[in-house]
């Protein structure tokens, strides 16, 4: 089986400071990979490099495109990369405000990606929007409300619907449950887990919440100071951490 995403020796520097360096891994179709680490460990920098928001200083990020197979997304032209990011890729931001258009209705938010790939039939776009709002548990009578009238959890679910409507194959998530209270978090995680399985999505989830990766991720990568210090199956890394920092991280989780 060919990997969906092949990351090879990616590095990003901010002047003399290391953003992230020496990162290599393969991601296979249907696989969910978690990246954990403390604030400033370079996990968001890495995610933005992979998603094309930042240009890495070194390395290659190869994606298995539908048309031409493996392509390096760093060297491909900007129109191609932007096309990828609105069709085969999705990006779920930590703050729903960054990923939504707050002055456009929920239906318009979901429909935008469809219209960006030349959907020009209002009725069809609306049906699809209603379908997707239903899948993320937003009732269809809220379709014409703006995200500003939604709660934090609903905004986050709307963002997910907006991203998944074009049937992407790879989803980047940056702290998708950050800032939500635990019961809302639990429902969101449940929803994400269902969607990932149902659509056979590959995902890269950046978070500092170990419970989130335990639930969602098949594989785990632990980062510190821009370096990957430990990788492995999620349960293996969390139950039998090898690196001193991972041991500290795992033992720092508050027990209720």
């Amino acid at each position: 089986m060919t990997p969906l995403l092949q990351v090879e020796d990616v590095a990003k520097f901010y002047g003399h400071r290391i953003g992230c360096t020496d990162v290599s891994f393969d991601l296979y179709p249907g696989e969910v990979m978690g990246i954990v680490g403390e604030s400033g460990s370079g996990k968001s920098t890495l995610l933005n490099c992979l998603a094309g928001h930042l240009t890495p200083d070194r390395g290659a990020v190869r994606f298995d495109t539908r048309a031409d197979g493996m392509r390096d997304t760093i060297t491909m032209s900007e129109p191609e990369r932007r096309m990828l990011s609105r069709t085969d890729w999705a990006f779920v931001h930590q703050h729903a405000r960054d990923g939504l258009r707050m002055n456009v209705s929920a239906g318009g938010n979901v429909g935008e990606r469809l219209m960006a790939v030349n959907a020009r039939h209002y009725g069809d776009i609306r049906d699809k929007a209603i379908d997707w709002l239903g899948r993320v548990e937003i009732t269809s009578d809220r379709i014409d409300d703006r995200p500003t009238q939604f709660s934090g959890g609903m905004q986050q679910r709307l963002q997910i619907a907006r991203n998944l409507v074009t049937g992407p194959r790879l989803v980047f998530m940056d702290e998708p449950t950050g800032g939500l209270d635990v019961s809302v978090q639990a429902r969101l995680l449940d929803l994400l887990r269902g969607l990932v399985r149902e659509m056979n999505l590959s995902a890269i989830i950046v978070t500092h919440d170990l419970a989130v990766v335990r639930l969602l991720a098949d594989r785990l990568m632990v980062m510190k100071d821009g370096h990957v210090i430990e990788t492995g199956l999620t349960d293996q890394v969390l139950d039998d951490p090898q690196h001193a920092y991972t041991q500290l991280l795992v033992s720092s989780v508050l027990q209720v």
Binding site: R82, G107, M115, I143
Partner: peptide, 18 residues
């Protein structure tokens, strides 16, 4: 430059929905 005009239709979509 990249001919990304999907957003223009979002405005028209909003018109019809409202």
């Amino acid at each position: 430059a990249l001919e990304e005009y999907g957003l223009m239709h979002v405005k028209l979509y909003e018109d019809i929905s409202q």
